[in-house]
Design a protein around this nucleic acid. Sequence first.
DNA 1: TTTAGCACTCTCGGAAGGCGAGTGCTAAAG
DNA 2: CTTTAGCACTCGCCTTCCGAGAGTGCTAAA
Lengths: 342, 342
Amino acid sequence: MTALNERKQKILRAVVTDYIQTAEPVGSRTLSRHYQLALSAATIRNEMADLEELGFLKQPHTSAGRIPSQQGYRFYVDSLMDQVELTPQEKLYLEKFFTQLQKIREIDQIVQQVAKALSVLTRYTSLVLAPQLKHCAFAQMRLIPIDEKQALVVLFTDTGYIRNKVIEMPRALSADELDRVVAYLNEELAGQTIAGLTAARLRKLRPDLYSRVDILHSLLAMLEECSSDGETRIFLGGTSNILDQPEFKDMEKVKHLLTLFEEGERLTFILETAPEGITIRIGTENLLAEMHDCSLVTASYHLHGRPLGTIGVLGPTRMEYARVTTIIKEMTERLNMLISML
Amino acid sequence: MTALNERKQKILRAVVTDYIQTAEPVGSRTLSRHYQLALSAATIRNEMADLEELGFLKQPHTSAGRIPSQQGYRFYVDSLMDQVELTPQEKLYLEKFFTQLQKIREIDQIVQQVAKALSVLTRYTSLVLAPQLKHCAFAQMRLIPIDEKQALVVLFTDTGYIRNKVIEMPRALSADELDRVVAYLNEELAGQTIAGLTAARLRKLRPDLYSRVDILHSLLAMLEECSSDGETRIFLGGTSNILDQPEFKDMEKVKHLLTLFEEGERLTFILETAPEGITIRIGTENLLAEMHDCSLVTASYHLHGRPLGTIGVLGPTRMEYARVTTIIKEMTERLNMLISML
DNA sequence: TTTAGCACTCTCGGAAGGCGAGTGCTAAAG
DNA sequence: CTTTAGCACTCGCCTTCCGAGAGTGCTAAA
């Protein structure tokens, strides 16, 4: 595409950097003074006019400074952004945080804490998708009779998730019978992903277990329920942080975002559709209209090389991309480590 | 205390009613026109001056209309407020809502849905405290060995709560031994509230179970952990609704509230300390400074006559108390019913 | 005791005008 | 040909300044 000569790139980088810090349109004067460009304001003005024509910058109104356009941010993120290091304070915070976290065994709680830490560190809003049951693989189930009519099914996944449901038992069954049914299912289903546990199962299982088909039905229904579980598996942190951003002094925008924050499914969708690894979505690159002047940085976390979920940071398009990226990278790395230790 | 004559009461009621609707200071003119007081503006003016002196009304500034003071709201709520009925739409909504809800078995999910419905109906923010483990009574526990070193403990409460935790087993124990320990604990602890399961236990149990004291330790530690479980057992609904209130056009206030909303423990505290039955806390009657210009209407919901948790609605002091109270009453009633059917 | 009339107060909204930051253009310098 | 200095111009923002409108308190009459 359009190749920017080195000088234009330097100027663009300076504009983006400055605007990210100040949130104010940046003028040629400011650039020539505060950045080592060795150019006069006039020259910079000309270059900026070019950059605007090329679509990397824009003016809020005539005779104001320039601010980066979406395309400008994109170029910055792709080509101009330097890597930053964690500050000593951030390192310290992370260190302490993960030390604390080791005590917690439940993945959902861990992930919730991660959301919080992420928002504290970045000072933006964080979104964290907990591991989804349906993407995990079936490991085994156990059945605990409660009384004549009900039993508790405990489901274990390969990722260490444990989930229980009460099911109704259509009729009293002996412990032996139950054990056999469960053992059979455990054998048949081991390794299958939860999402795959649907109608396809029924066909296979009927033939040789006719007498127990009713209890099987209950169990399969329960599994299917798990596979389509609409539970909110998303955690937010620092939602109030968006109010610190000058771009959200407009109540309407805030309202739209806050409303979005209450819609678990749509948020989940956003994080689910993020590809593996680190992704940065800027402005209208986000699918949801409410996020059209936001940017979202996401990364997936893994167990045994398989993606479990996603963590993300949401801020204005004028986001400190470099800093956020570094923090997210570090966070996923440590989270992966933590999870792999069970 | 100060007895208000009937006329003053009528006027106060009119002021509160009008201000609740319009959010604008109400003047003598408006009152004489829109309310059947059969009094001239001048007379009303005099009475309003009295009411102000008595502390029930206040003026935002000289020569503006009057608005209710906190004391004014308090008097209104205690003595002046008429009962309102649910609108047909509200009834319909509730009907549908609870029909849907019957399908859900897990109390936490139910309660989360209630929070949502409550915010939709009231158009304020809702807070709902889920049943707290520690207030429930121990019913029984089951232990499922996972491998040599770990076992899953499943805890049942009398309220139908089911909670599981993985514990480390200090050494391999035979199934028989485990069964006996668990059976023993089940007998000893049945009916005790989870909150009571602390150090007091240890004394009783040591003597006759010396050989298994290590596994006992693990189990007791696990129970104790449950009793002090800091998990977020609170659900919010309609947080973005506060932005619709003109009193929250000030970003600072909103920010304080949103930040508070992220602090589960403090919110939990607020709801925990609410007495049984319906309570209305106005302005500074709320313990948290962030809520000093909010009002909170709460009610507790029950199972078998025992309070399980609390539901609440948070809005500006200029809240539609009558409407909210009716909705909350109806909601708790139906929720009680739903829960009692398991 | 109630009411009409009146002068007074205070907020809010819009208009006017000055300030400052920044631009684009032109012409000179390198 | 590129860079730079100078300059006129534009435009948003802030302050100030009314005028309108709503509402009050007081006084005097019904």
